[in-house]
Structure formats: C-alpha cells, structure tokens
C-alpha cells in the first residue's frame, strides 16, 4: 500500500535534520493513538463537545504529517462535535479517521524499524 502520509512539511521544517523528523514521528506515535482512543470513548459516551475538542487538537498534527485523506474529515468531526450535531455521518467519519490513522501508525512504525 502506498504511503498515505507526507513528511515533506516536517522535513522542510527540520532543515535537513532527520533526527528531528524521527523524533516528531516518535511523538506522533506516542500520543496520537491515545487521542484517537479517547475521541472514540467520548463519542461512545455521547460527549460530543469533547469529541470536537480532541479533533481540534489532532487537526494540526494531521496537517503537519500531510495525511491528506483525512484533513477534511477531522475538521468535519471538530465542527460537528462543537455544534453537538450527531448526524449519521459523524460515526462513519470517526471510523474513517481511526482506520486511516491506524494505517499511518503502521507505516510510520515501519519507517522507524
């Protein structure tokens, strides 16, 4: 499967320091799975405002890692969460976010290996 992330923004920021890029990857892998789990839990508990707040926090990380298939999705989850708008699509969007990120986690772990 082709890469669904793009580290070019991070690489530009790093100014040639691959150590920095790798340490950012490590931080991403360390924190984001927990955040996704928390987002899922809050959704299951019906705390939509919290869902929006967590999506808000994850959003810049997704942009930074160039995970383009879900940049719109995370914004939609954020907006619906803030507006406490639990429509039929929200569940699917959260699912899409989780699944996509799991693939990204695997690909990044491979990169680190």
């Amino acid at each position: 499967m082709s890469k669904i992330y793009d580290l070019s923004q991070l690489e530009e920021l790093a100014g040639g320091s691959m150590d920095f890029v790798m340490s950012m990857v490590d931080t991403f892998l360390e924190h984001t799975p927990q955040q996704i789990q928390e987002l899922q839990d809050q959704y299951n508990d019906g705390n939509l405002v919290q869902v929006g707040a967590i999506a808000h926090k994850i959003k810049p990380n997704i942009d930074l890692f160039g995970i383009t298939p879900i940049t719109t999705t995370v914004r939609s989850i954020e907006n619906k969460g803030k507006a406490e708008q639990d429509d039929a699509e929200l569940k699917e969007e959260i699912e899409k976010l989780r699944e996509t990120l799991e693939v990204v986690f695997d690909q990044l772990r491979e990169l680190r290996a």
Partner: peptide
C-alpha cells in the same frame, strides 16, 4: 501548548 507534537515543532522552529 498542550499538543506535544505542535509544541515540539514550535520549539524546534523558534530555536533555529
């Protein structure tokens, strides 16, 4: 910044 990743990015960038 409570977002670890973003904080790290800002730290790196501004420390250049």
């Amino acid at each position: 910044e409570d977002n670890e990743l973003y904080a790290k990015m800002m730290h790196h960038h501004l420390s250049l």
